[in-house]
Amino acid sequence: MRYTFLLYTDPADLAGMTPEDWAAEKEVYGAYIGALQKAGVFVDTDWLQPVETATTLSLKGGSRQVQDGPFADTKETLGGFFIIDVPDLDAALAWAEKCPAAKTGKVEIRASAMGSV
């Protein structure tokens, strides 16, 4: 089953980073991606631009509303995601525990609903 990890981290953790800092950051996530790939469970991942760059669109209620900024204003924001393919939630949890974002933020684990409809 496919599971998506939504990575919520505090953007303040990444404030004032130099190119070397970014390289170190990528190296850590690269090691995690490598482990997922070696285990044959990796599907996709992305690292998102900071939340200030978000644009939120809604057609709910009949009118087109475009908002500059995120849907919800929270301290920890969605910074990226992973999609992995593992048999069950136990396995998804085992991998989420190893995710760097879990150590300093939160990882929300959501199973894919595509197979169930």
């Binding site: 953790d13 800092d21 850590v28 150590k103 300093t104």
Partner: peptide
């Protein structure tokens, strides 16, 4: 701190700040 972060799979920037 960067080496520690790499070995423990923690964000180096977040670890350094902590």
């Amino acid at each position: 701190a960067r080496t520690i972060a790499r070995l423990f799979l923690i964000s180096p920037a977040a670890l350094a700040k902590r």
